[in-house]
Each structure stands twice: as structure tokens, then as C-alpha cells.
């Protein structure tokens, strides 16, 4: 009886030493997964995912509280790369991959400057009492300006289809 206890404890101790020593050799800092994910997010803190900012959204995604498709500005591309990063599967159906951009209705704009103050990416240019304009390239379609505008002359539109941005649709699957 005494022998078995002695053998087992000595075996356990020996292996414990080896592991303790190995732990020092292979010490690796906690890999910054949350920071990685946050750096992938658009970083506009637009709040469309329901979290205050991209940081908290990243944290929620890492420990599985939020689905990787909860970030509309990122669209399908971001959802897919996040799914690969976190090794989860993502159904991209609810994410419309068609980007929406804001545009100002010139006839209604009174130049009240409320919209370009709230725009997270400074996509709107305008001055007091001057006509405002939205830069399509910089606009992520977060919709903050639409709510901020008193004259509701800003609306989100789909990009107009021209010969340059037209793409072949998918062939009918047999």
C-alpha cells in the first residue's frame, strides 16, 4: 500500500518538474486575440452592432457573445475573415453585401452643419449656410447623419449601376 503511494507521488513529482521547467522554456504571452479582432473591425464605433464601440464588440465576438455578422459596415468580407480568425462558421445571408452610401438632397439642405459633426469618418463637407456634400468613398452608410438632419434631406442610397461597377450575376445553379 505504502509502495503504491510512493511510486505514484514520485512519478507525479517527476513529471511535474519536467512540465514546470518546460513551461519556462515555452512561456508565451497571452496572444492578443481581442486586440487582433478589434484591429480588423472598421473602428468607426458607429454602434450598428449594438455595442458602444468596436473594442467591446471585439471582446463580445471573442468570447462568443456576439455573432461575427453583427457588423454591417464590414459587410460579408469582414464577417468571413472574422469567422476564419475565430474558427467559427458564419452564415452571410442576412448581411446585404450591397454597400449603401448617404447623399444630400440639394434642394432641401439649409447648411445647418449638424450632419458633418456626427459623421464618424468626416465624409460630409459643408459650412454654415452652405450646401453640404457627401463623399461616397468615405461614407460607410452608418446612418448617423440621417437621424441628425432636421430637414431629413440626407438618405441612404444604393450605388448607381454603371458599366464600370456592373458585375456578372451568378449563373443559375442546375
Amino acid at each position: 500500500m505504502f509502495l503504491t503511494i510512493a511510486v505514484l507521488t514520485s512519478l507525479g513529482l517527476m513529471l511535474g518538474f519536467i512540465l514546470g521547467y518546460a513551461d519556462k522554456i515555452f512561456a508565451v504571452e497571452e496572444d492578443p486575440l481581442i486586440k487582433d479582432v478589434e484591429s480588423m473591425l472598421p473602428g468607426t464605433h458607429c454602434g450598428q452592432c449594438g455595442f458602444t464601440g468596436c473594442g467591446s464588440a471585439a471582446e463580445a465576438m471573442v468570447n462568443g457573445e456576439a455573432d461575427v455578422t453583427c457588423c454591417p459596415p464590414g459587410g460579408q468580407v469582414l464577417a468571413k475573415s472574422l469567422a476564419d480568425k475565430l474558427g467559427v462558421s458564419a452564415d452571410l445571408s442576412n448581411l446585404t453585401s450591397v454597400p449603401l452610401t448617404a447623399s444630400v438632397e440639394e434642394s432641401l439642405c439649409t447648411g445647418c452643419c449638424r450632419c458633418f459633426r456626427v459623421c464618424p469618418t468626416d465624409a460630409i463637407v459643408g459650412a454654415n449656410k452652405q450646401l453640404h456634400y457627401v463623399f461616397k468613398d468615405a461614407c460607410t452608410g452608418c446612418g448617423k447623419c440621417v437621424t441628425a438632419c432636421p430637414e431629413n434631406c440626407i438618405a441612404l442610397h444604393q450605388e448607381e449601376e454603371t458599366l464600370d461597377n456592373w458585375h456578372w450575376p451568378k449563373p443559375a445553379v442546375v
Binding site: 511510486v7 505514484l8 512519478l11 507525479g12 513529471l15 519536467i18 512540465l19
Partner: peptide, 8 residues
């Protein structure tokens, strides 16, 4: 013992 070793 084997399980101990394998775990280590």
C-alpha cells in the same frame, strides 16, 4: 501511470 505519462 500510463494516463499520467500521456497527460504530461
Amino acid at each position: 501511470c500510463f494516463i499520467l505519462v500521456v497527460a504530461a
